[in-house]
Design a protein around this nucleic acid. Sequence first.
DNA 1: CCAAAAGTACACAGATCTGTATACTAATAA
DNA 2: TTATTAGTATACAGATCTGTGTACTTTTGG
Lengths: 190, 190
Amino acid sequence: MDKREQLVSVAQQLFYKQGITATGIDKILAQSGVSKRTLYNHFKSKDELIVAALQRRDKEFMTMLKTAVPRLLKQKYDGATHAGLWAYFDAIDEWINSDKFCGCMFINASAEFPRKSDPIHAICASHKMLVIQFIEQLLVPFQLADSHKVAVQMAILTDGAIVNAHTANQMDAAKLAKMSAQQLLHIYQQ
Amino acid sequence: MDKREQLVSVAQQLFYKQGITATGIDKILAQSGVSKRTLYNHFKSKDELIVAALQRRDKEFMTMLKTAVPRLLKQKYDGATHAGLWAYFDAIDEWINSDKFCGCMFINASAEFPRKSDPIHAICASHKMLVIQFIEQLLVPFQLADSHKVAVQMAILTDGAIVNAHTANQMDAAKLAKMSAQQLLHIYQQ
DNA sequence: CCAAAAGTACACAGATCTGTATACTAATAA
DNA sequence: TTATTAGTATACAGATCTGTGTACTTTTGG
């Protein structure tokens, strides 16, 4: 019933699966069953729709993390305090090996909109910052001297795993990234 | 004078800087000073030109690695046998912080052409395999039990650094990735 | 019930994109 | 020299894309 939500939801799916530039407005209208006039009443351009789709994906992804990590922490590690980070990599692994996986929407979007000044690119950057903050929380039990730096290192492992799975079909990339993380934190813990 | 080479060279630059779908044939023709008919005598479609541009970039990037790594190995590590991998991460760092950097062309291309069956996507995958092989050579001095697995872990760190630099403006990503690599190989060396 | 808000259908402007057709010109090689 | 090859200029077909204009219909709140 909420036409705006329908539009953004369908746009998000199509942009993610087929690329943003490659997805025309008409495809989104056809699949959502909304008229073109309604779209341009809610958004003044395609760019605004792209922004809304990315913001929706941002919320969706963070929600996924915030539910999957506690679930896996309980399932696989009996809720052990330090194991949040392992559960995080397990969650990434689950996602990468699910059929909905098509790379990271924000990495993909910044590939299509490479100019740093582009608002679309800026949204991608701030999403990545949010993920780094999320990781930093999981690092608290390790009592690290510079937990932000380590969080960025974990983010690098994450993005590397995502890209290797998507581009090079390395579907075990998240498992390898998790191993790397465990070995790295073994050092930091000393 | 070699019109084909001019076309592929300009196409590579524009595809890399602006994205592939966003770059029209006409822009490539204008910048290379070649007529449209000549383009379609050499390539039967834009897709073929894309393939040629990616293959050219593949050669260029591998050549860059094969010259930068020995140079940095000598400059910074006095040619120490085991330091090839550190020189490799230094080379990635140099590239990331150069003004020509605009992410990894193959990561970007697979974002725009996500279907695994697409020949363009396949070229991206095989480029990543070449890089992994290159890394594996640098791991020889470490005499690892499973050097391929570690090479993939290094590739994950590399791609993560590239993506974090490009998408999240983390320009020190390669330095952090190098640190991770050094800590990881310290373990593997024991 | 009725007025305002929201949505639909559809035509179309104007730009852009890939690819082709045609007729002419420059270079090259036997 | 002359035939062939390679390239140019340019118009254009046909598709597609974003965005607007207009007239009609549905929904909804007071």
